[in-house]
Amino acid sequence: MNGEVDDPFPVEDCLFEETFSNESVYNLSGHELRIKQVFGANLGVAAPVWEAAIHLSEYLAERSVELEGKRVIELGAGAGLLGVFAARLGAEVTLTDLPVALPPLSANVDANTPPGGWPSPPRVLPLSWGTDQPHFPSDWDLVLGADIIYLPKTFPLLIETLVHLCRSGTEMFFCSKMRKEHRTHDFYEDYLPARFNVELVQRDEQQNINIYKATLRT
């Protein structure tokens, strides 16, 4: 695949001084996705397609995770590869991120509309963790996130958001590059297990990328 990004998040905000874009083509389980990455405009880490999004997309397809007809919400969707892929597999997808990221995210959703149209058009909505979750329902089938665990100050806000979004039976899949400088391990070993049952389902030693499955503790 071309256009893959493997650089770690900078410690700060990862802002780009100039605005430019490129379009990359990703072939996932027979689906060709064209994703434009817009760098600049204060998009920061929402701009690139991170390797974790590709890993989790491939995992969902290879492990035959049932997506057709499922109500799916993606947190921190960024450029939208993961959520768009889930929608192409038949899920009813809501892609969320901070307001600044929504215009290029919406453009990528529109650019990947199947020839016959979406069975269920994806929605793109703003969601700031710890603030906006009451505006969302609590009956999702699947919650997805790829490389969204990198700012320790947001960990409690994310947990608060996840507790609201999930019901008994909701499955969550998260994929992260395990960066020590961002305390990614702490989130999965301390924060998430406090409220959720957590299972490491895939480990890529070479790229230091983990995929976790979690369900709400009842």
Rank of each mutant, 00 (worst) to 15 (best):
Q37L: 05
N22F: 11
H135C: 09
V84C: 02
E181R: 15
H164R: 14
A86G: 03
P103D: 05
E68S: 07
V201I: 13
P122G: 12
E18D: 09
E171P: 09
R71H: 10
E4Y: 06
L81Q: 07
A77R: 08
H182T: 15
A107M: 07
V163C: 01
H164V: 14
A101Y: 07
Y150I: 12
F173T: 11
D97C: 11
L125Q: 07
G69Q: 09
P152E: 03
D13Y: 12
T154V: 14
A214S: 09
P137E: 12
G3I: 15
D110H: 05
M1A: 04
F85V: 07
T154H: 07
S24I: 02
V5R: 04
E66T: 14
L162G: 01
S106L: 10
L28E: 00
M172V: 14
I148Q: 05
S57N: 10
A87H: 01
E92F: 02
T113R: 13
H55D: 10
Q206S: 13
S57R: 08
S29P: 01
F196P: 05
Y188G: 00
K213C: 09
R71T: 14
F136H: 11
N210R: 08
R34S: 11
D147L: 12
K177A: 11
N208G: 11
R167G: 14
S106K: 13
G145I: 04
A79W: 06
A91M: 11
L15E: 01
Y188M: 06
A53H: 07
V100M: 11
F155N: 03
A61Q: 05
E68W: 03
C14S: 05
F187H: 06
C175L: 07
L98G: 03
D139Q: 01
L67F: 11
P104K: 07
V49A: 01
G130F: 01
D6L: 11
P121A: 02
A146P: 00
